[in-house]
């Protein structure tokens, strides 16, 4: 077991040998990158310590070595070499990733000029023009290898575009800003429209004596869900993610949402590696709705002491002006 003291200082010896083993493999793949073992180990140690800090319970040495082996080591090796300003690494990075970065930027930006500006800004940020304690700080030094380098670059591009947008629109709210970047733009009117409908609905419900109980019960029901269920519902209802998009997000077997929902499912043991289809996401949503409904009813009965017929009134109130999207309809359009 890794003790609390270890979390602050040195990692177990087994980790050292795993780090060296990974380094040797990377150095063999890219001998011209000039990454030193100590630099590579320092990066891995930093990531491992962050992992330990986020772990309230003790972490076994085996778990820690497995964690290290999951790092995208070749991507990290390239990032470290670029961070150090290695010419060969930069050349490889430019060859392998520039066109992808440009395509992503063009996909997100409103004009080609914006896209080029974003790519340029990201390149400068990656190289690093800021000097701290006499050393140039490269954005690459923040990459830890937990995700792929390409995925990380995609995130960097996205953030850079948001920053550019923010710089050119001084008084833009956070939502407005993010809604105007990428596909979110297409959903910009969703929350506002719902808000109008909601206000109207609240006004109607306000006239009824069951309004307070209904709102309070749905609030409690949602609050009592597990974070994974909440997140799934938020993705679907607030972010307007399609079932296909959620399925893509949980494609990896290690996806937190997939792992959580499958652990709750009796079919997991039968086929743990099966692909996640949209119908599976739909089932997860259905289960979450069922839980919300159960909690909602329980809350109305227990806390507000409502009878079945009164609960029915609340249900009616809850669904007045029901113009929300239909789960099944969404499935057929994907």
């Amino acid at each position: 077991m890794v003790t609390e003291a270890t979390q602050q200082s040195e990692l177990p010896k087994e980790c050292e040998s795993v780090m060296e083993e990974i380094f040797n493999r990377c150095a063999e793949n890219a001998p011209n990158f000039g990454v030193r073992l100590d630099c590579f180990k320092e990066s891995l140690q930093k990531t491992a310590r962050k992992y330990l800090l986020n772990s309230p319970e003790n972490v076994s040495t085996r778990e820690l070595t497995d964690f290290l082996r999951q790092i995208q080591a070749d991507d990290l090796f390239l990032a470290l070499a670029c961070s150090n300003g290695n010419e060969r690494a930069w050349w490889e990075f430019d060859q392998n990733h520039r066109s992808y970065l440009e395509r992503v930027a063009r996909h997100l930006a409103s004009t080609d000029i914006d896209a080029q500006e974003v790519v340029d800004t990201v390149y400068v940020e990656l190289y690093g023009t800021r000097v701290v304690d006499g050393e140039r700080v490269s954005k690459f030094s923040t990459y830890s290898g937990r995700g792929s380098l390409r995925g990380w670059l995609r995130t960097v591009i996205w953030h850079s575009l948001v920053d550019l947008h923010r710089a050119s629109h001084d008084e833009v709210s956070l939502d407005e800003m993010t809604e105007n970047v990428g596909e979110g733009f297409a959903h910009a009117s969703f929350a506002e429209t719902s808000l109008g409908g909601e206000d109207e609905m609240i006004e109607k419900i306000a006239k009824q004596r069951y309004k307070k109980a209904t709102v309070s019960a749905i609030e409690t029901a949602f609050a009592n869900l597990d974070a994974h269920e909440k997140l799934l519902l938020l993705y679907y209802h607030v972010e307007s993610m399609k079932l296909r998009e959620i399925a893509r997000m949980v494609e990896s077997q290690n996806s937190p949402l997939r792992d959580w929902f499958q652990r709750k499912s009796p079919t997991r043991e039968k086929n743990p590696e099966s692909r996640i289809h949209e119908s599976t996401i739909m089932r997860w949503l259905e289960k979450s709705y069922a839980k919300v409904l159960q909690l909602f009813r329980t809350e109305l009965r227990a806390k507000h002491e409502l009878r079945e017929d009164e609960i029915e009134i609340c249900m009616e109130l809850a669904t007045q002006d029901l113009a929300s999207r239909n789960l099944y309809q969404n499935l057929t359009t994907t």
Partner: peptide
Amino acid sequence: ELRIQGLLDRYLNR
């Protein structure tokens, strides 16, 4: 289920 979906949808967006 449809009712709770609708309520939840409006609640979450609000």
